[in-house]
Design a protein around this nucleic acid. Structure first.
Lengths: 333, 333
DNA sequence: CGAAAAAATAACAACGTTGTTATATATCAT
DNA sequence: ATGATATATAACAACGTTGTTATTTTTTCG
């Protein structure tokens, strides 16, 4: 089919190995012959065969990302950031939206230099380290379930920060709206963290203090908040468990003609810029996506570049980003 | 690094060529040894090296999809469907979220057997056929801008169907809310199609008949609709230009305490199941995603399997899916 | 001028597969 | 039992590169 270095060799009357060196701009070949060969290669429309090249030199300069749940918006920002970070390191990124197992299989076939895994909540397939046959890998969240290094977030700390912030503003009646139905350890940790923080500040847990949405999407947040607002006990502040949930929460509040933050303060989990694009720019807690992206890629590249070093397993600290959805509680008595 | 057929050979005590045949289920190797080898390969976690395979037999059984705009929800459904379709054909799919050019470069490196391109509105880089160096490719939408075969949608027909449907329900005052600011030919074609349909039914174009959102997202739809509803001339029906826009449109209408479809009928463009999951399940027009996915992959596989055939370039016909967001216009006189 | 050193090129072995050809082993008919 | 025929396995040559080693050619300088 295509033009090979052997074709170029016969045309230019040198050996194919000289052609190879000329094309790779090796100092081992005389400048004149080099430029002659380059010219001929150009004219013949030579394109290197990557399969052949990859077979001998072990690097693909590519990392694979497993992302089974493309539909969730919050993660797509992170993926974009990671991609940018990867490019910055002169690597390319390919994505698979299949299950972890079949995605990893494919990445092995393509011999990627590293693998990033976004673990799906409902994907219970356990892959231990050996499955990756020495390909450096890192997973985001839920790392304990795959045997590989992971980057995680200190969710408890996040909830502590949120409660503390609201407490200092004078709030005593705070509701957490999140998904703590089961399985996903990230969600249950937020839930636990909130309870601990409330206890720490000696705040009472009432019937309406912890509301389980049963999902992480907009609708779940919307419905749950409506249920809350229809009741008699409306809290002075709400913490939303995810970006999408928080969108629904805001919506429901506005529909009751309540004003954020005058009537009710809201904090959302997930530290992504889009939080500022919501109808009401939302004060939020979480690890900024840039930090997440940087840590994930750094840890992976460290494994790639120093295969024998102990992989960086991090528990990232969340930050609180003030916007305009929280205000001091006004005493009503 | 990874397990090779030679490793399997030494373990199972046969030659590596026998292993190769066993793995390819050749009839030349005794069933017993075949299954023995297969079992060992399984245990060792063998995955074939694509680069090596590709070097000798020209296939990788992989197709690449270029998808620069991961953030748009409507497309993610299509991607998922295409992935399923690809798997059904015993191929794998990898994704790149980079610009068309660098994505194609990478896919060339990996020697994928075919490429699917989702063209980004603002990506003006023109790649002619030769850039793909004979790799079969197909683009979805905006195909004329890359020199390669494309699958497109008859957007004019879609708008005709929508207007016709509303006309038959008695609506005479219909507003189109969409993004026809510039560039994206898909959007301008919807816009033109709407105007033609209105003309065909002898309906008047008033000041509020065509509203340009300047974007395709939820917020754009929401803002534009609010502006419309604050004016004195409220139409009896609205057509939304995309899934996300339509979400914003519904929201704005509800906030004005108008009821869909009693007070106002709404049709949305994009024929995806999620249309039914909106607050008000929306009657919609568009090519069903399954049909789109099937056509895209079919055309690509046809090119792969019969390289000399003329590629299927299709202009798909939209369909109208009735849900509950439209009602007959009630005469008020 | 001629040997040693340097520079340029050629030869060859990998890389991990597949496909073809050659060899060993089992099966069969006579 | 013996050669002929299947059947099973092994050996080996590709595929198009890169990197290492061997050979040739050129330069240097005593």
């Amino acid at each position: 089919m295509g033009v090979t270095i052997k074709d170029i060799a016969t045309i230019s009357g040198v050996s194919f190995s000289t052609v190879s060196k000329a094309l790779n701009n090796s100092p081992l070949v005389k400048p004149e012959t080099k430029s002659k060969i380059l010219k001929i290669a150009q004219e013949m429309g030579y394109e290197p065969n990557f399969a052949a090249r990859r077979l001998v030199s072990k690097e693909t300069k590519t990392i694979g990302l497993v992302w089974p749940s493309i539909e969730r918006a919050a993660l797509s920002t992170l993926v974009t950031k990671i991609n940018a970070e990867v490019e910055k390191n002169d690597y390319s990124m390919i994505l698979s939206i299949n299950s972890t197992k079949s995605a990893v299989d494919m990445f092995k076939r393509f011999q990627v230099d590293g693998i990033i895994i976004f673990k799906e909540n409902d994907d219970s397939s356990y892959l231990d380290t050996s499955y990756f046959s020495n390909i450096p890998a890192i997973s985001y969240g839920d790392g304990n379930q795959t045997g590989i290094p992971f980057i995680d977030v200190n969710y408890k700390k996040a909830m502590y920060l949120a409660v503390e912030y609201l407490y200092q503003l004078g709030h005593r009646d705070i509701t957490y709206i999140g998904d703590f139905s089961l399985g996903d350890s990230r969600q249950t940790e937020k839930y636990e963290g909130f309870k601990e923080a409330m206890k720490h500040f000696h705040l009472q847990l009432k019937a309406q203090t912890l509301l389980n949405t049963g999902g992480l999407d907009w609708q779940s947040g919307y419905r749950t908040t409506n249920r809350l607002l229809e009741s008699s006990n409306i809290p002075s502040a709400i913490i939303g468990g995810s970006y999408d949930l928080s969108g629904g929460i805001i919506r429901a509040i506005k529909e009751q003609n309540l004003i954020i933050p005058k009537d009710i303060s809201v904090i959302g989990y997930d530290n992504i810029p889009q939080m500022g694009d919501l109808e009401t720019p939302l004060t939020s807690i979480g690890v900024p996506v840039d930090v997440l992206a940087k840590n994930i890629t750094d840890s992976l590249f460290q494994q790639i570049q120093q295969p024998d070093s102990v992989p960086l397993i991090q528990r990232l600290e969340p930050e609180l980003k003030e916007r305009i959805s929280c205000a001091a509680k006004v005493k009503k008595d």
